[in-house]
């Protein structure tokens, strides 16, 4: 409530309060009008499809197009979620997140620490360290896909080769996709960690220098605790992004070999491509559940250890 409407209220003048009511009504109308475009988009493209997933999951898509979908209740949920296909996909998604998120944060932090010193020309290094932020998933994937190609790629020539080729190798394919992802995200990770480091007041670092704390102690006892909100943020957002990985998989491995890189989003895409909406919907519900669980758990566990100052 704005201050002038409050004064009108105190005056208790009937004519004025009628005007006040009118204005109030106008403000309500304007408020809804301003929210309307966003709410329209959200209803059509976020909430409706979100709830529709549960509905679609109750119907089994017929084997031939044209036949009506059959209502099967929770059967399809049970069937898909207990299948080996889903269990594998779920495990691959978790392993992928574990391979990419912590490594991305640690490398970004390392680069940020190294670049956070007063040296001539450090600006150029900063630009280089953040440069991969200009690469998209597709750019990074095509670069690495070609570099790893057994016929024309440079990495096999440098001795980085397996039999069968890395991207067709059940043992290493996911790892190769993870390395591509870490490289592509490195610039972003560096930028986020750097801004976290720069937000730490210089006086605190200088004070510990005067106290004679060794660099290693200083890092563990001072820098890292003060940086923990940034690390926490990077961890939560990074995990969510990792669970939505799609482009790298599509460009590098198409979910193969033998489903070893078939992350949840790719499984959804494949079900959708096969026009199996029911299965795709169940997988989408699972993806949402996992994301929600994960973020809530991370909030609960990590937030307690995060140092927020004041």
């Amino acid at each position: 409530m704005t201050s002038d409407t409050a004064t009108t209220d105190l005056m208790g003048d009937v004519g004025q309060s009628k005007r006040f009511l009118n204005r109030r009504r106008r403000e309500t109308g304007l408020g809804y009008l301003m929210l309307a475009p966003s709410l329209l988009i959200f209803s059509v493209f976020v909430f409706y499809p979100f709830f529709k997933n549960f509905y679609l999951g109750f119907f089994r898509t017929p084997p031939f197009p044209g036949l009506p979908a059959r209502y099967v209740g929770l059967d399809q949920f049970r069937e898909v979620l207990t299948s080996d296909y889903f269990t594998n996909s779920f495990r691959v998604t978790i392993v992928f997140a574990l391979l990419t998120v912590p490594a991305g944060i640690i490398l970004g932090l390392l680069l940020a620490m190294v670049a956070n010193q007063r040296l001539r020309g450090i600006g150029a290094y900063r630009t280089i360290f953040s440069s991969t932020v200009a690469t998209s998933v597709a750019v990074a994937s095509v670069i690495f896909g070609t570099l790893l190609n057994p016929q024309v790629g440079l990495l096999p020539w440098l001795g980085l080769t397996t039999n069968p080729a890395i991207l067709e190798n059940p043992k290493y394919a996911l790892f190769a996709v993870a390395v591509t992802t870490i490289w592509q995200n490195l610039g972003l990770s560096f930028i986020v960690m750097s801004s976290g480091l720069q937000a730490i007041p210089d006086e605190i670092i200088e004070a510990t220098e005067v106290d004679g704390a060794r660099p290693w102690t200083r890092f563990w006892r001072v820098t890292l605790p003060l940086l923990s909100p940034t690390v926490f943020f990077a961890f939560v957002v990074g995990s969510i992004v990792a669970f939505q990985t799609f482009g790298q998989i599509d460009l590098l491995t198409q979910g193969g070999p033998i489903d070893k890189t078939n992350v949840l989003t790719y499984a959804i895409y494949k079900a959708l491509r096969d026009q199996n909406e029911g299965k795709a919907a169940v997988l989408a519900v699972a993806l949402f559940g996992v994301t929600l669980l994960l973020t809530t758990a991370q909030m609960r566990i990590l937030e307690r250890r995060v140092h927020y100052g004041n």
Binding site: T2, G31, S38, F50, L56, Q244, T265, A280, F288
Partner: peptide
């Protein structure tokens, strides 16, 4: 602005952040 249900609507806006786009792609 002040209007009824402002709080609820704001929470609805924030709720959209919890839904990954991949989840809505089918419909």
């Amino acid at each position: 602005l002040e209007f009824p249900l402002k709080r609820t609507l704001f929470i609805i806006f924030l709720a959209t952040l919890m839904v990954p786009f991949e989840v809505t792609v089918i419909t």
